[in-house]
Amino acid sequence: MPNHRLKPLSPLGHDTPVVTTIGPVTISEMIDRALASVATRRDQDKAVAAAAKTLGIPLPGAGHFEQAGVFSSFWLGPDQWMVEAPFASHEDIVAILKPTFGRAASITEQTDAWVRFDVSGKELPSMFERLCTFDLRSHGTGSATRTVIDHLGCYVIIRGEALLSVIGPRSSAQSLHHALVVAAQSAF
């Protein structure tokens, strides 16, 4: 942990994350994960797979998310993943990943490019059918996709039975949060 004197602000603009409960669902602003994109360089598939294995980073297929110990990842596009790790231990996540991946992958810090809202509770499909085309009723745990919510490109990641994450552009955190809240109020 660097010993600097700057105090972070949450995406919604507060010292602590916002948690909102509406009916059966709870919408939680999450600030405790570091993110980095990992993209395979040309003809380096094997090297990337080996490095990922060494570090214990899963590399799920198209449309998927996988958790494996400290790391979890979801697919961004062909040959590209978003790797998640605890912020407290992995704030400088690129510095942690780079030595192992070496020149096999292009790695970019993405932590603060995004705002993540975890939405938990029952009947999530009733809420999300008011937000996006992603069909929660036909997708289970481990599905991850990018879709449009309130005009914003967002990742929707199904982490468990009654838990999913919406990861959207950080600068629009307030708009996205508002969209989630009104959808929940409309549904419940």
């Binding site: 660097p2 600097h4 004197r5 700057l6 972070p8 602000l9 810090e109 932590t111 603060d112």
Partner: peptide, 29 residues
């Protein structure tokens, strides 16, 4: 690094025509 160790990026570029820099820190800071 800035303010005692936060990773940052510095670019000495100018749009105004003055001696100028652009400095970048992770958004939360």
């Amino acid at each position: 690094t800035v303010c005692g160790g936060l990773r940052a990026r510095l670019f000495r570029i100018s749009f105004s025509g003055e001696l100028a820099y652009e400095i970048a820190v992770p958004t939360r800071y």
